[in-house]
Design a protein around this nucleic acid. Structure first.
Lengths: 230, 230
DNA sequence: ACCTGAACACCGTTCAAGT
DNA sequence: ACCTGAACACCGTTCAAGT
């Protein structure tokens, strides 16, 4: 039981950016749920209440974290280059998106799960990039509205599979397929058991096969529309 | 400052089911985030710690709530009937799924967001129903593996749009499109501004148009595969 | 202007004690 | 076997007080 040891920090020793990065580091090291004001403050050697001078609330801080996460994601996504075939580009784009979120749970948690509201800045960056992709598709012969729907569909599907994969992982059930297997009674579920044993499908619907099948189907549909609209 | 008023409840006055329903009522009346052990207990006129005799932890209770929510969803989803055209059925099925989750935020929060792990029972019910749908598709001329991928794709896409819609609503931003509109600078985003003004697209990617376009595209792809496989 | 700790109202959970 | 309150370790947030 000694007297409090921490000395008073000099003015300006923390700012919104330092706090933000400490929070992101903490989220990646542990879990977004484990990010608390005291935990962030401890990392910074600061009193927990000091954060409130720079962020109005934890919600405010989380919003900033989501904004940063969106930037991190789009920084790693390829931009369309002049001359890239449209289909190859979209495949690269959405495969990369899936990989990025799968490799970093924090990003999925911040961008796809815990969102209350995006900052306007993050939204602006996002639209800027989508504009570029739509422009590329239009240059490749798509009507603008078709280009939009194509992007929207692929984006929604990809986010869907990412969310499902993340949920799956939250169960931290390495044996999820093992558990699934035991649920399937051949008598009452002949098709699913046959598919599982014969084709090796994953009942969780989040395998590479599921992703690639859907991607190919949607892109086929886009290609056909493009032909018919020219 | 009076003495505690609550009299001791008789034995057996609460059980797992009563607790579960109180928790679900509370979640629907307020918000899943507002469901706390004390709040549930208050509804039941019981000490908060009494719940722990029936559920090991709040996580345990949330798992039970998710299981109940899955049942509620599937109870409202149509079953395939002999003779229903496959395409019309799938359209009804996924439109209904979207509507169910949109009409009851609690269901989306429990089933699509807050999932740690499904109970085995819930998973069993789910597979049972999917088996029926796959069987119908096979009877309609699909190869089993194609039937599986078709269902998986539509399911993942639909869950994706539901999650996006729910996130949108969590911003409780009635003016989200208004805010989006102001972000679009015609000079730097000519295509998006033209689409917004001319075609009336919703930048949030969760409009009926977006849903129906994707549904039609995916089902077209399925129809074509079905033809080529016969 | 910026950092501090005391203080408040809330949680989830444990546990010894009642009936 | 089931329900109870006291108690503990945690939160997010406010605020008067320091420098």
């Amino acid at each position: 039981m000694s007297a409090p040891v921490r000395t008073r920090r000099p003015r300006g020793s923390i700012d919104p950016d330092i706090i933000l990065h400490a929070a992101l580091d903490l989220a990646r090291a542990t879990d977004v749920d484990s990010v608390s004001m005291p935990a962030i403050a401890e990392r910074l050697g600061v009193g927990a209440t000091s954060i409130y001078w720079h962020y109005r609330s934890k919600d405010d801080l989380l919003r900033a974290m989501s904004g940063a996460a969106i930037h991190l994601v789009w920084d790693r996504l390829p931009e369309p280059e002049a001359g890239t075939p449209w289909r190859a580009y979209l495949e690269r784009h959405f495969r990369a998106m899936r990989a990025i979120y799968r490799d970093d749970d924090m990003l999925a948690d911040l961008v796809l799960f815990r969102i209350r509201s995006y900052s306007l800045d993050a939204t602006h960056v996002l639209f800027q990039r989508i504009e570029g992709i739509v422009a590329m598709l239009v240059a490749s012969g798509f009507r603008p509205i078709t280009a939009w729907h194509a992007y929207s569909t692929l984006s929604t599907f990809t986010r869907g599979i990412i969310v499902a994969e993340r949920s799956q992982r939250l169960n931290h059930s390495p044996a999820v397929d093992e558990r699934h297997r035991r649920l399937l009674v051949p008598q009452t579920m002949p098709h699913l058991t046959a598919l599982l044993d014969g084709e090796g499908i994953a009942l969780a619907m989040v395998s590479d096969d599921d992703f690639e099948w859907a991607l190919a189907r949607i892109l086929d549909g886009c290609a056909r529309l493009r032909e018919s609209e020219r």
